[in-house]
């Protein structure tokens, strides 16, 4: 399953959110979108899931334009998690996760596994609306895990922004495992250190333009990031892992 973005541009009124973006998402890997606020990260993710019909250009999912795919077809190949999940009914945690299978055959074991992976089994009867935002983000991730197939796409918009640090790194491990088993993970992050830790590939966006894309070690260079974020950074080598990014 491939995702290709071709000359994608989109405006909200007079504000250009995306400007002529072209790139390919490497399958079975983790691609992270970084950039300052209003860089176009969320808009790009919404174009990928077909929620926005772009003004020009297109996102191709398995060679089909995303905005032309029916919701039913798209749900079978991609799951989406917004930064702030919303459920306006008093559903329990389990009921929300089960809705990930809305157009798919019922699969209790997959729902149970997703709940277990995100440490939600003890919370499964609690009302979603009564959880903290960080817990709600875990539920939304579990719902996405219950939905996607082994080689599906996970499209995540700041999915861990309100989680406790232990859960952030638990999710990092889970997403890594998903990518290694065949899933394509695309996520927007504002935490550059976390991005450097989790990403295989990075798309650096600024003011709606794709500034740079490629391997994490090529893109996450202090020189590139300073130009976009306006802050001095340095890479610090870590034993047995990827380099960390620190503010000077």
């Amino acid at each position: 399953m491939t995702i290709k973005i071709e000359n994608l541009s989109h405006s909200f009124g007079k504000i250009a959110a995306l400007k002529d973006i072209s790139t390919s998402i490497k399958p079975k890997s983790i691609t992270v979108l970084i950039g300052p606020n209003a860089a176009g990260k969320s808009t790009l993710l919404r174009c990928i899931i077909g929620a926005i019909r772009p003004n020009s250009g297109k996102v191709l999912i398995d060679k089909m334009p995303a905005h032309k795919l029916s919701a039913r077809v798209l749900a079978k190949c991609a799951a989406y998690v917004p930064q702030r999940p919303i459920v306006s009914a008093a559903f329990s945690v389990r009921e929300v996760v089960e809705l990930g299978r809305y157009v798919l055959p019922r699969n209790i074991s997959k729902v149970d596994k997703a709940l277990d992976q995100l440490d939600l089994t003890k919370l499964e009867d609690r009302a979603f609306q009564n959880l903290s935002v960080g817990q709600q983000q875990r539920v939304a991730l579990a719902r996405a895990f219950a939905q996607i197939s082994v080689n599906g796409h996970l499209i995540l918009d700041e999915p861990m922004s309100a989680m406790d640090l232990n859960y952030v790194y638990k999710c990092v491990d889970l997403l890594r495992a998903k990518a290694e088993s065949g899933a394509t993970v695309i996520l927007a992050l504002h935490d550059l250190s976390l991005a450097a830790t989790i990403a295989d590939n990075v798309l650096l966006l600024d003011n709606g333009k794709l500034i740079l894309s490629g391997d994490v070690n090529e893109v996450m260079q202090p020189g590139h990031l300073t130009k976009v974020f306006g802050i001095e950074l340095e890479r610090v080598a870590r034993a047995g892992g990827k380099d960390a990014l620190l503010v000077k």
């Binding site: 919404r46 899931i49 029916s70 919701a71 749900a75 989406y80 998690v81 917004p82 919303i86 499209i155």
Partner: peptide, 21 residues
């Protein structure tokens, strides 16, 4: 009924789980 359950999600989430909103 099941579609109404799905419609309680935000627009993007509802569409992403397969609801033709």
């Amino acid at each position: 009924g099941k579609a109404m359950d799905a419609a309680t999600f935000s627009d993007d989430e509802a569409r992403s789980i397969g609801l033709n909103l």
